[in-house]
Amino acid sequence: MKTMPSLLTGLVLTAVFSAPAGADEVQVAVAANFTAPMKTIAADFEKATGHKAQLAFGATGKFYAQIKNGAPFEILLAADDETPAKLEREGVAVPGTRFTYAIGQLALWSAKPGFVDDKADVLKQGTFNHLSIANPRLAPYGAAAVETLTQLGLLGALESKFVQGENIAQTYQFVSSGNAELGFVALSQIYADGKLKGGSAWIVPGNLHNPIRQDAAVLVKGKDNPAAAALMEFLKGEKARAVIKSYGYSL
């Protein structure tokens, strides 16, 4: 640039070359339960930094398979803490970038008002045909639901009423369509702005299951992307944390 005779030309070129550097894109794989808050956070992030976050929502297990097979994701917001750790061990996630961005809250929910009481007696009464849970083999929320029922001593009685969603989004769908009278969903799905959106719910006390730690990690594809680093920072910031809490996650 210094050899350029004209200051004007130099300014123009600087603008042209630096513009993309100031507004990078980052590809983010987001666990299905974090869909709603992440949309809000991504919008805030774009406003605050000029970077753009491209979001893909889905099951963490599926993202794992895709990432291992070359999917172009640069950040993973997992539904658990195991998958990011595993990816780091396998050299696919950048070491030292992992952190818990949210702790999931499990809720027993029915689309019918008054169906679920705040002591979960409905589970003992068993006056329903279908209890929707996320596949415990695949989804942390499903595993937490099974742990909760075990703690309550109800697993044996209710197992035959299980219908399983492949992920927490489908679990929610079964309940919201009324096909299952109630189900264990993520509080974030039925909670917005600090209150229940509809139906009736019991927020499962944290002592009934292992905490659902949701970890994020930068993947090797995003290692040198400034937007990836910026998004990780943004997630740790006050603004994002406030959004995350408002959707019923604890931190």
Binding site: G61, K62, Y64, A65, N135, R137, L138, E166
Partner: peptide, 8 residues
């Protein structure tokens, strides 16, 4: 099959 894949 989907379950097996998802469960890695």
């Amino acid at each position: 099959i989907y379950d097996h894949v998802e469960a890695m």
